[in-house]
Amino acid sequence: MSLADERKALICFIAGLLKDCNHVAVGASSPIPGAAALLAKQMWQSPRHVNILGSVKNNFFTNGAQELFDCAAQGRMDAFFLGGGQLDGQANINLMGRGEYPVQSPRWPGTFGSAYLYFLVPKVILFREEHSRRVLVDKVEFISAPGSSDDHVYRHGGPYGLLTNKCFFHFQKEKKKFRLDYIHATSSLEDVLDNTGFEFDYEDIVQTTPAPDPALLACLETDVAQKVQEVYPQFAESVFGDSVK
């Protein structure tokens, strides 16, 4: 499977997770989640509203950059995506850097809106292509946003699952622990175990991630590819090749 095909499969997988949403927002420079949201909207007209930050055409907010956060706090946003330089087994995420704060090395860009949106958006999908012990750690070195909170803390949102280029973990809120649900055809249980720095639950036999539905894939490669090109030109070219030029 080529890298382009792997990425198309990730897009189709994420699209399936968004089918039950009304409003999905995607942060700047997140082409795979962005493409997935556009695909789900095109295929099922659900989500009905897709907002891609940093895009002029795919952004309907009229009240400035704060509207995204106000929307989330009011419960008007159903899904969002977060990543991180480090993610741990309790779904804590670190967007700040490695080493002791504040003089970290490396220092990453910063926490952005994660410390807010993780509490308020019901379905936060953690997405990070790189699946390695460097990224998926036992304990993050800085908590930009915690995976769970004490009972008395107002929390209407949080992690739904974690998708990488090897597998999909579902986050079990009660146990505060990931459960391995699907392994991509390009990987194996051994491969996932070798490259994951945190403990997670799994059955003896884990399902293989289903191949993308042909109709969904066709929709991605035709109608949606062009829309993706408008927002993420370089990414579109790498995945869809000359067809979007």
């Binding site: 704060y101 926490t111 410390a115 807010y116 949106l117 930009s144 915690p146 107002y154």
Partner: peptide, 12 residues
């Protein structure tokens, strides 16, 4: 503001 509690951002 809601959220933020439990983040190291708040600590620092």
């Amino acid at each position: 503001l809601r959220g933020i509690i439990g983040s190291d951002i708040l600590e620092h």
